[in-house]
């Protein structure tokens, strides 16, 4: 485990477009993660992501400003179509990025075999949540950092860091998935497409909204998955954030429509040996990127100087306009 003092904690920020990357760099990101314009990454949304030439320019810009670039190639190659994923790794290596974020064992083997100098990070999509699993990835592929799934408490993260030799990165802000990252088939069940294989959860082409008596009605595929009364915050159109009736109880049976905000836990995560803090939201705007990166850089600065972590002002950009510390505190049932 590499002890962290807070001063060497990294802030890893999302960018869905080249201007968002520049905003993240300018706002003080230590590293920016982004993806190519195809299903090799888990934010394969219309109008989003980087062409090869975009990525080359983005890497140049980031490196000129002392910021690292990680490329997410974190979906699982389809049988018979692995060339697309291999080409993404080839191109990332050719662009001299600082790391690639991978989830699939076969792709990790490809990257480790063809590019031994390419730094490998294990994606949250791999769902490696215990020391044995993490040690396998380190020993087999030389993984240098693991992005931990959002199922662990701070104490469990500390235990993991005490038992492994690589760095860990944890999410501190943004949308939450159901607690089985890389293994969720809810979107696939309804639409035939999933974040794991196609890079899209609840693809926009399958989403419909309409208003009925002031309520916002959300449909996914052939199902109505939510009906939100006027004046209440809306949620993403995913099954996990939908509201359903079961056993005469109506409500969100999978997850509340709420964002993760673990800014107050940064000192505890630091003491738990975490190396890097990750912000979710490659699908979000430049305005979101600027607001969140600025807030978390201020939090890191405050911690490094011994000051109190500043109060979060990010509720406005949060799903459901409310926040949770998620599994880190495990205050739910």
């Amino acid at each position: 485990m590499t002890p962290t003092t807070g001063k060497d904690m990294e802030l890893i920020c999302p960018a869905g477009t080249p201007p968002a990357l520049r905003v993240a760099v300018d706002a003080g990101a230590h590293a920016v993660y982004c993806g190519f314009q195809d299903e090799t990454n888990a934010r394969n949304f219309p109008g989003l992501n980087f062409s090869r030439s975009d990525m080359a320019a983005a890497v140049d810009y980031a490196h000129q400003h002392g910021t690292k670039v990680f490329i997410a190639i974190n979906t699982f190659p389809r049988a018979g179509a692995a060339t697309l994923w291999h080409r993404a790794v080839d191109d990332a290596a050719a662009l001299s990025v600082d790391a690639v974020i991978l989830a699939d064992i076969g792709l990790l083997a490809y990257a480790a075999g063809h590019y031994p100098d390419l730094r490998l990070h294990l994606s949250v999509q791999a769902a490696a949540a215990n020391p044995e699993a993490i040690r396998f990835y380190v020993d087999a592929f030389g993984v240098k950092r693991v992005v931990l799934p959002r199922v662990l408490s701070v104490a469990e993260i500390a235990d993991i860091n005490g038992a492994i030799s690589c760095e860990t990165e944890v999410f501190v802000f943004g949308g939450l998935c159901v607690m089985a990252e890389g293994r969720c088939s809810l979107s696939s069940y309804v639409t035939g497409q999933s974040p794991n294989m196609h890079g899209v959860c609840s693809p926009a082409s399958h989403v419909g909204y309409h208003e009925s008596k002031g309520d916002l009605v959300t449909r996914l595929g052939n199902f109505t998955i939510n009906r939100i009364p006027a004046g209440q915050p809306a949620a993403y159109p995913t099954l996990c954030k939908g509201a359903f009736r079961a056993n005469n109880v109506s409500g969100q049976i999978f997850e509340d429509a709420v964002s993760l905000d673990a800014s107050t836990l940064i000192p505890a995560l630091c003491r738990a040996g975490v190396k890097a803090l990750k912000i979710e939201g490659r699908q979000r705007s430049r305005a979101y990127t600027k607001a969140v990166v600025t807030q978390f850089r201020a939090a890191l600065h405050a911690m490094a100087s011994g000051a109190e972590i500043p109060h979060s002002v990010l509720a406005q950009v949060s799903e459901g306009q409310s926040a949770t510390c998620g599994a880190y505190l495990k205050t739910w049932r």
Binding site: A230, G231, A234, R284, S285, A291, V317, S318, E319
Partner: peptide
């Protein structure tokens, strides 16, 4: 200046 998702969440 505004985030589309945030404007959607807030209706």
């Amino acid at each position: 200046e505004a985030d589309g998702d945030a404007l959607f969440f807030s209706r």
